[in-house]
Design a protein around this nucleic acid. Structure first.
Length: 265
DNA sequence: GCTAAATGTTGAT
DNA sequence: TCAACCTTTAGCT
């Protein structure tokens, strides 16, 4: 699931596999031929993620920027890759193996100006050491927009998507319709701290799990995929904490679930 | 094994 | 406001 934790994992994996090597860059699909030519044969100096955006540094003057969107995926492997199957936008090859990118929303080569502009419009990323949660709170504290909508704005908090939004608000006991300016500094501090915990756990596990271990096994005696969340995709099912049926609405064009008892208006 | 829906953003209309 | 992206996964049969 490509929320921020996925992209940070991509950056980590890409650096581990290709960092410091000369990369053969191609676009078997053909849609990125011009960009690939700008990177082909250059040294991959490092990678980073900011929210859901991946940056691969191919020298001082150019970076590969990728946003997976809803469908995009990276596939990795050792040795020599098979002939491309399906629509491979980008293929990277080096001694460290190969990587294929399919279905991204954004895939482009940026110069330092473009990179700076992109970072400038992205907000606090719970997985970055340089994140500025105070700046995020400054925006939230003067906004009449709901906290559920604000968490989805990448210029406020970078890396949170529909899953982390629903789950973090549940764990904080905050109703998603509450206006940003009605979230106290203390509540924001706790919410931010929890996002750091949740995204770090997601990065480590490779998938999103927000339920505490004690909450997982209580009923069935075993952990399952459905037990990974408190409310996300559990509309109408009993809240794991209080039993109230989980509510559903669309907010900012995305699914949102919450418990009307644990997260009162 | 098949179908429908999904984690998200961009660019066209 | 809507289509594109065109993969993965959950949920059926």
């Amino acid at each position: 699931m490509p929320e921020g934790h996925t992209v940070h994992g991509n950056a980590r994996d890409m650096a581990g596999r290709f960092g410091g090597q000369q990369i053969v860059v191609g676009s078997p699909q053909g849609r990125f031929e011009d960009g690939a030519a700008l990177l082909d044969g250059r040294l991959l100096e490092g990678t980073e993620a900011h929210g859901k955006h991946l940056f691969a540094h191919f020298g001082d003057d150019r970076q590969l920027h990728v946003h997976l969107g809803l469908y995009g995926t990276w596939t990795w492997g050792d040795g020599v890759p098979d002939p491309p199957r399906g629509l491979v936008r980008v293929r990277l090859e080096a001694e460290g193996g190969w990587a294929d990118l399919r279905g991204p929303t954004a895939c482009e080569v940026l110069d330092p100006t473009g990179v700076a502009a992109l970072h400038a419009r992205l907000g606090a990323d719970p997985l970055r050491a340089d994140a500025d949660p105070a700046a995020a709170h400054a925006r939230i504290a003067r906004s009449r927009v709901s906290i559920g909508a604000l968490l989805m704005q990448q210029e406020v908090v970078a890396g949170v998507g529909a899953v982390y939004r629903a789950e973090a608000l549940f764990r904080a006991g905050i109703n998603p319709y509450r206006a940003g300016r009605e979230v106290t500094a203390q509540e924001w501090a706790a919410l931010w701290a929890d996002l750091v915990v949740l995204l770090r756990a997601g990065l480590k596990a490779g998938r999103i799990v927000t339920t505490r271990p004690v909450d997982r096994d209580r009923r069935t005696g075993r952990a399952s995929r459905a037990d990974s969340f408190y409310v996300y995709r559990r509309t109408g099912e009993p809240c794991r904490v209080c039993g109230t049926p989980v509510s559903y609405a669309q907010m900012v064009g995305r699914h949102l679930q919450w418990c009307p008892t644990c997260q009162p208006r």
